[in-house]
Structure formats: C-alpha cells, structure tokens
Design a protein around this nucleic acid. Sequence first.
DNA 1: GCCAACGTTGGC
DNA 2: GCCAACGTTGGC
Length: 141
Amino acid sequence: MAKQYWLMKSEPDAYAWDQLVKDGTGMWDGVRNHTAKLNLMAMKVGDEALFYHSNIGKECVGIMKITETASPDPTAEEGSPWVIVRVAPVRALKHPVTLAAIKADPALADMDLIRQSRLSVGRVTPAEWKHILKKSEKPAG
DNA sequence: GCCAACGTTGGC
DNA sequence: GCCAACGTTGGC
C-alpha cells in the first residue's frame, strides 16, 4: 500500500514535540476514542504523521514516522481495546503551520482536523500533506 | 433501541 | 471561563 499520512494531536503540557525529539522515539499512548483507535490500527511502518500541539500553540510543529504498528496500550486496563503505536521524529517544520492558517486555506478546510475538532488522530490526504509542507516553508502560512 | 443527561475535549 | 461538538451512560 502507498504511504499514508496522519495528524496526531497532543497537548504540549502532556507530551510535546521537543520531548519526542529528546527521546528519539515515543509511544503514542492514551488514545481513548474509537475513531482515533481505528486510525492507529490502520497505520503502517513508514507512514508519516504531523505532530500537532493542541490547546497551547494550536499548530503543526513537526513530522514523525511510524516505527511500529499498533499494539495493546500498557497504560489502559487489561483487556481493553486501546492501542498504541511507536513513532520517531523525522524533522521539525521550518515554520509551524497554525490552525488558523489551515482554516483560512480552502484547500485544507475539509481536513479531519477541522471537521472533527475533537479527533486526536486523523487522516491527512497526500494532497493536504503536500500543501501543509509547502506552507511550512514560509513564515505564517 | 431510543433519547436525555452528563462528561470530556478543544477552540475561542 | 465559556461553549460547541461529540461520545458515553443509564433510564425507560
């Protein structure tokens, strides 16, 4: 299958991009939403994902890759359906792409991120991915 | 199986 | 701090 693209949210208070970079690898745990879980389970090694800071910042700050597909979430109760994936940082975006910039762009207005604001793990289409990366090359969109 | 009440998330 | 969106729970 072709490479898939994703967007994963984290409150920087809980787990920030800088922490992932420092650690070199990370376990994406704590997802407690079935739609998000299905997305985690659809991820393949080598897929890429945007790291989005929710609440504080409200912007995409970096690119990660999936290094390990879904496995049971050790932070969840035994027998629960929740899963984690493992990720590693690829690179920081040259300039963060803010939620405001994404909302303001008609090409990106249909993203999972916009349509379902509470979804913590969403799909990004290849077109949207390209578009966001292009935006990140220039300051403020 | 429906629906109201409630809790959580996240933007503003 | 408020509110909208959405998921979950519980009564019927």
